[in-house]
Computed example of a mutant assay.
Amino acid sequence: MKATIRDVAKLAGVSISTVSRVMNSPQSVVESKRRKVLEAVEQLSYQPNSFARGLIYRKSFTLGLLIPDIENMYYAGIIRGMQEACNKLGYSLMICNTDRESARLLSYIDTFHEKQVDGIVFASDRMSPEYYEKLSAYRIPVVMLSSHSDEFEIPSIEVDDEAAAYDAVKYLIGLGHQRIAMMGFNDVNSVSGPPRLKGYLRALSDGGIDAASLLGRVKHAAHYFEHAYEAAHELFMEYPDTTAVFCVADEFAMGTISYLKDQGVSVPGQVSVIGFDNVRMAGIYIPKLTTIAQPTFELGYRSAEKLHELITTGQTEIMREKLLHKLIIRESAGTVS
């Protein structure tokens, strides 16, 4: 029969709470008792039960993650980073895919409350008053990931989207491009879309290009490869003299390149394309994508650490944390032919 915490306490001659402290906060137990407990654990081959720990500490040792699209390649690194941090910190991770549906997201918050998760990472979505009110009513600690709220005081972690977009477009300008288009998000709730557009326009202006004259070249797509393909068709039908496209996601860049290839347009020979995110496929796609790298693993890892800090102390040292992006130069962008 599997040993229980009660068996360990009896063999060590201590209370159940002392065994729990040794398992979770050994420095709080005097060395003599700690040694007895550890000897009993080894003798009985005892493995702590997370449910039992939860009863003692009134915690589930589970974190929730809300993401809008689990098929999006961007979230693979995020989830991996969060999982790694959870393993280190002693949490399990529960992932819910919202499909960007408000009713579904609200339902998942209810589910997290019922499961008594200790905190939630809220990724890549706008924090509406309705979401905030429910989270506040349930008193669930929340950290926003790849997003932030100007309306509510919620800890967040992300990259500087405007600065990253600026660097991408500045690089294209440095290659001699003037007629630079942008493939942006058409989601009205997008948090990263507006600052990336702002970075695009600022880079054009700083590069001596009339940004207003290029606004017609700003096209929008939903969230997938095929939507970007369609938007690229619209762009090049209207503006066939476009020499470069800044895409706000690598999947958009791949959709744009695919359209150009189908039209017999070489990339980067005739048109340069730069992406955003640096998903794993970016280095495999042909041509390999020049892109803005987001540190997805680190974003996921830090979001879990930040949430743990909020859960255990009631606050975070940095309210709005920003990690560094990096321009990755590969094959899809070149000088003007």
Rank of each mutant, 00 (worst) to 15 (best):
K88M: 14
M94D: 00
L63Y: 04
A76I: 15
L93W: 08
Y75K: 10
G81P: 07
A103H: 03
Y108S: 01
Y75G: 03
Q83E: 11
R100H: 10
T98A: 07
R100S: 12
E101T: 01
Q83P: 08
K88P: 07
E84R: 13
L106E: 03
L105A: 12
E71A: 15
T98Q: 09
E71V: 14
L65F: 00
G64L: 04
I95S: 06
G77N: 05
E101Y: 11
M73L: 15
N87S: 12
R80H: 15
R104D: 09
E84T: 13
L65A: 02
M82K: 02
S107W: 09
N72K: 11
E84Q: 14
I67F: 03
L106K: 06
K88V: 11
I79W: 04
K88G: 09
P68H: 09
M73W: 15
R100L: 12
N72M: 11
R104E: 04
M73S: 14
I109W: 07
Y91N: 05
Y91G: 07
Y75N: 00
T98N: 05
M94N: 08
I79E: 07
I109C: 01
T98F: 09
I79N: 10
T98M: 10
Y74V: 12
D69Q: 11
L106D: 01
I79Q: 04
Y108M: 00
L63G: 07
I78G: 00
I70W: 04
Y91A: 05
R80A: 13
R100A: 11
M94Q: 07
L93M: 06
I109S: 05
N72F: 09
N97Y: 06
L65M: 08
M73E: 15
I78L: 06
Y108D: 01
D110C: 06
L65W: 00
G64A: 02
L65K: 06
L66H: 04
S102G: 10
G90F: 10
T62F: 02
S107A: 11
I95Y: 02
Y108L: 01
L93F: 02
G81A: 07
N72G: 13
A76S: 15
T62G: 06
D99C: 14
Y74S: 11
L105Q: 00
G90H: 00
P68F: 03
M73T: 15
I109F: 00
L106V: 05
C96W: 01
L105P: 06
R104N: 01
D69N: 15
